[in-house]
Design a protein around this nucleic acid. Structure first.
Lengths: 208, 208
DNA sequence: TAGATTGTTAATCGATTAACAATC
DNA sequence: TAGATTGTTAATCGATTAACAATC
């Protein structure tokens, strides 16, 4: 498969490529060449799977030595579109919202949090990690002015749908949903569920 | 399939059951009967998939009206093992760790955070959300004393493997990993990756 | 050379979707 | 009754694994 046409990958492929990138960034920092077997065994998956994923990135390896680590890392970054800067805002400046605004790893992947929004008067005007907390009433202006299309949603569950409706109306098209609520949105809006509870229960179930 | 033998579900099934539960908790709060079609269309999946998942929980529906909402909710809770209380600790009392210690939804699913641990002397002795921050040196004693088997890992990336080795040695068998690092652990230890970056990139890729 | 590792095809496995009889 | 919805089987689809020739 030598398709060079930009095609969207399956979620599984994206998830694995991200993990390969983590390995190259944090685990195999001083490696010049990395084999599919090394990556596969760190993740507990099949090595031919790794070779297939890497082939999708257009990187060619060498028999006996493996894949050039630096080139592979850059190719993954390119395929994942990490270089595109995403200016995003956080709606809901509670604990989780505040934490995410400080989560420095996001920066490495093109995610720049530019402001937080909250409905609590006591929080407004304060800054978290040098980012201002603004009132919900300024959402629309801010989003249009700064050309934002992506929002991290960390409001309380009982406000989630209401705020979502507002965001959709303003024109936001990506909602990264950290609330435990299912959101009703029109087809042109993408919601990414961060199913934290589900992941915990998976862990408990995968045991042995 | 009328298997009543306790069998572990696939991760996909667990993830979906959790979402059905969210719907019953936050979206369809006053519904007596819910149809597979209603659930499916909220999640954008096939309705026969929903019926299959529900069958796994041992709940029977009624033609024309659907499934009894309350009974379904309880059956899901039972299948997911939500009633088992899990006393867990957070290692790394930074922003993310602090946020998770306050994440009240966890409580609803049997997850009780009992303490935080950190290596920073300035943090030790403080409390977050009524939970004490203790020094790493007390990890071993605490874990054995309180019979903890599960840890939320929110340390900086460069400390992740080192702390993991310590935890494994102490006898922890579940590590819920919020760092962007791949952890090397023996086979009897389960690591659940919270691949936040990967999920963001999925969202961007799923667009249209 | 012998050993190791790629790139790729074929085989297997599992998950999703379609379809429809049963029935409230 | 007619319409709606379940429960379940069969068909399809996609993802993972096995296998191996090519070759550094």
């Amino acid at each position: 498969m030598k398709e060079n046409i930009k095609k969207s990958f399956s979620n599984k492929v994206i998830s694995r490529l991200t993990l390969y990138h983590c390995i190259l960034t944090h685990t195999l920092t001083d490696t010049l060449f990395v084999s599919s077997f090394e990556i596969a065994s760190l993740l507990g998956i099949d090595d031919s799977q790794v070779r297939k994923d890497i082939a999708l990135c257009g990187v060619y390896g060498r028999q006996k030595s493996g894949y050039p680590a630096h080139e592979l890392k850059q190719a993954i970054e390119q395929k994942l579109g990490v270089s595109q800067k995403n200016a995003i805002i956080i709606v809901g400046a509670g604990n989780l919202g505040s934490a995410l605004s400080n989560y420095s790893d996001l920066m490495d992947y093109g995610i720049e949090i530019v402001a937080l929004f909250d409905s609590d008067d006591k929080k407004i005007g304060k800054t978290i990690n040098k980012k201002e907390i603004l009132p919900i009433s300024q959402l629309s202006n801010f989003i249009h002015h700064k050309n934002i299309n992506t929002v991290i949603l960390t409001v309380p569950p009982d406000k989630a749908q209401e705020i979502t409706d507002t965001l959709v109306q303003i024109g936001v098209c990506y909602i990264w949903n950290f609330t435990p609520c299912i959101l009703k949105v029109p087809k042109n809006v993408t919601v990414q569920y961060e199913n934290i509870i589900g992941n915990f229960l998976q862990m408990k179930n995968n045991a042995h």
